[in-house]
Write a protein that binds this DNA or RNA. Structure first.
Lengths: 125, 125
DNA sequence: CAGTATCCTGTGAGATACTG
DNA sequence: CAGTATCTCACAGGATACTG
């Protein structure tokens, strides 16, 4: 892989455009992925349940987000041949392993969001 | 990082649109912020030095990124009244405290990016 | 129920050129 | 050196309506 020169303290060059971090941030940094992952963190959910829990998301965008997460192996989609149709979404083991890092960011955010907002105000935002 | 279940029982509602996590992900999830933070993780750097180390970034975008990070209190900008002008950028303590969480994501990425790419290929991306 | 199908818009970001 | 100033464009993502 791309172990050019260790930046920060790992074996990857964080300044490289194809650094894995970038890939992952593009996946979870978008507007909705993290909501979906959070919603599925403890429950298997159906399409409409997801839509209800994640307020404000449109079906189109929810579909896109779910397909992207599925493509990357983070979410599993199971279709039951019933009438009416039933589709269940759950995190894969890979998806579940992301909960830890996300949690680290979330905890930082909860601890420091006040400081960020203060700085923002001080700057006149 | 206490939680294996980071989602809905941490005191904050991760599914809320104004969840702190979202704010932070919007900041570090954009195309360049993490590069800037990484570049400044061990060194104080000047504008041109940043531009050189972060290949491909245009001055306009670098300026925008630095201003945003400064606004949020993550980066400090120090101007020296000299000729030719000299401006130094460094992480604030708040900015440095972000290195931990970022590192957690980076480590996950390094460990699992292969699986993600395999899943992506398997899906025909 | 679990999505598609269209249409539309804001904006992140690139290219390029110029300046105190 | 350390930025501004414009222009441009792709595309994520929203609104709305429809369907197997």
């Amino acid at each position: 892989m791309t172990a050019n020169q260790p930046a920060m303290d790992g074996g990857f060059d964080v300044l490289s455009l194809d650094c894995p971090s970038r890939l992952i941030l593009q996946r979870i940094g978008d507007r909705w992925s993290i909501f979906v992952i959070a919603a599925l963190s403890k429950e298997v959910l159906r399409f409409t349940q997801l839509k209800q829990r994640i307020g404000g998301i449109t079906p189109k965008v929810l579909t896109e987000t779910l397909r992207a997460l599925e493509t990357d192996g983070l979410v599993a989609r199971e279709v039951f041949a019933e009438m009416p149709p039933r589709v269940e979404y759950r995190l894969t083991p890979l998806g579940r392993s992301l909960l830890g890092p996300i949690s680290a960011v979330r905890e930082w955010a909860e601890t420091h969001v006040g400081e960020v907002l203060q700085a923002r105000e001080r700057a006149g935002a």
